[in-house]
Design a protein around this nucleic acid. Structure first.
Lengths: 143, 143
DNA sequence: CTTGCTGCAAACAGTTTGCAGAACT
DNA sequence: AGTTCTGCAAACTGTTTGCAGCAAG
């Protein structure tokens, strides 16, 4: 599945006339090996630890490309950092964000997705994407 | 209703031992007179036009107070500015955000709210607040 | 009179950009 | 060879903070 994602990005890159570079490969590998919701800074540190030569700006630029290619999605929480999560084709998950321990629990609910489509339809709105975040306390922190 | 909100803020201020100042009154008045989703910068410009002496830092600080008092809510869209919206007790609305013209359409859907409660229950999660944003093109921009 | 609040400017954090050299095709 | 990409550092943007003076209680 990681291989598929790499192929997907390569097609995107080819279609846009982008070059295949060592840095992009490395950053893609590391991004794909991470868990969800990594911040640019976190990813940059990971990248730097195995590849000290790679600059922060490249990581920023590359993540933007990933987002553009549909491989990743930018998410904004309330900590002042842009985070990126993996996009899994045909699947969309939303987040329960614990304000106690910052844990993020993912969930998916088809009914909610369908209701959103109804709402959009009612407003003549064409949906590109959406984001649902529920803030509160997880089972551990609520005690 | 504006008066009620002022009273609510004054109780909050009193409870926290905050002082009542000319600046906070002015900023509160202007905030309450605005429409939804105003950015700090926008509000600051409004404030400055009628009260040139008031500084930007005060506006930032005061809006944070409003959020803390439950009168306003911070929202993050993808334009790099923190915005504040009015909190209406017992009501919660979500947003359709047009990426074409930046229009924001509000909606409310009780079914979605209830589904969220179900999901939270299933995960042992205690909900404090939530945020649902649907991105796409509004009826004008999709043409 | 005491303490909190304000305005200013400087500091800050995250992100973007200009540019010269390196790397891909 | 011709372009795109990279790394660096500087620039930028939105926001926060330190501090001296001002104002509320």
């Amino acid at each position: 599945m990681i291989l598929e994602k790499k192929k997907a990005f390569n097609s995107f890159a080819a279609a846009k006339g982008l070059r295949s570079t060592r840095q992009r490969d490395i950053i893609l590998d590391i991004f794909l090996s991470t868990h969800q919701h990594i911040s640019v800074e976190e990813l940059y540190l990971k990248v730097k630890s195995s590849n000290p030569g790679i600059g922060q700006a490249t990581v920023y630029r590359t993540l933007k490309l990933f987002a553009e290619s549909g491989l990743a999605r930018e998410i904004l929480l309330h900590d002042g950092q842009t985070r990126y999560e993996h996009v899994v084709a045909g699947e969309h998950h939303d987040h329960l964000v614990c304000t106690g321990c910052n844990a993020i629990i993912e969930f998916e609910d088809e009914t909610i997705e369908n209701l959103q489509k109804d709402i959009a339809l009612r407003h003549g709105f064409f949906i590109r994407s959406h984001k649902l975040e529920i803030y509160g306390l997880c089972s551990t922190c609520r005690i």
